[in-house]
Design a protein around this nucleic acid. Structure first.
Length: 168
DNA sequence: CAAGTGATTAGC
DNA sequence: CTAATCACTTGC
């Protein structure tokens, strides 16, 4: 995942994500097709960013994944810093490497993601995601999602995926 | 481990 | 209009 800004470029390898399958997922903002101003972008085509503010102070970065009228998205929960680390440290105001991107709110701060990123085309802008081939399936760890206790039975769905996450 | 924080939403 | 909610972090 790469973000080019006027301050510099930051690059991080995605190590942790969660899937949200809109209509069938009590943890998703788009559960049962619920459609609001905020979730509108999730109903659009895939490849777009969905960014929103949570708990008053932190942004979360999602990638819309399906086609129009299918509100599905992937929440990026953690990155491993690859480049622009000094810039990340400055933005996060810390020196600890593993404290830079080890959480949804943290990585948004480190990558300078905020509301202006919302609804951005990830295939045409300064923020984009590169594809890594040949990732062995056995290197992907699958677990239930976290911090969604309110979601009832949906909280047990194994839709959290970790890869190469020794920094977390 | 507890509390802060404010946009967003649903409910009058 | 108002009140309740929340895909988290930090500092004690």
């Amino acid at each position: 995942m790469v973000h080019v800004t006027s301050e510099g470029t930051t690059i991080g390898k995605i190590t942790e994500v969660e899937a949200y399958i809109g209509p069938f997922d009590a943890a998703a903002h788009t559960y049962k097709g619920k459609r609001t101003n905020r979730t509108e972008v999730a109903f659009g085509p895939g490849g777009y960013a969905y960014v929103y503010l949570i708990y008053g102070m932190y942004y979360c970065f999602n990638v819309v994944t399906n086609v129009v009228e299918k509100p599905e998205a992937v929440l990026i929960r953690a990155l491993e810093p690859i480049d622009g680390i000094e810039l990340m440290k400055k933005r996060r105001n810390t020196d600890k490497l593993k404290n830079l991107c080890s959480g949804p709110g943290k990585l948004c701060q480190a990558m300078a993601i905020d509301k202006s990123i919302n609804q951005v085309d990830l295939c045409a802008g300064k923020l984009y995601i590169l594809y890594k081939d040949n990732i062995p399936k056995e290197d992907i760890i699958t677990t239930p999602r976290i911090n969604i206790d309110y979601a009832g039975e949906a909280k047990d769905y194994p839709w959290r995926f970790l890869y190469s996450c020794e920094l977390i």
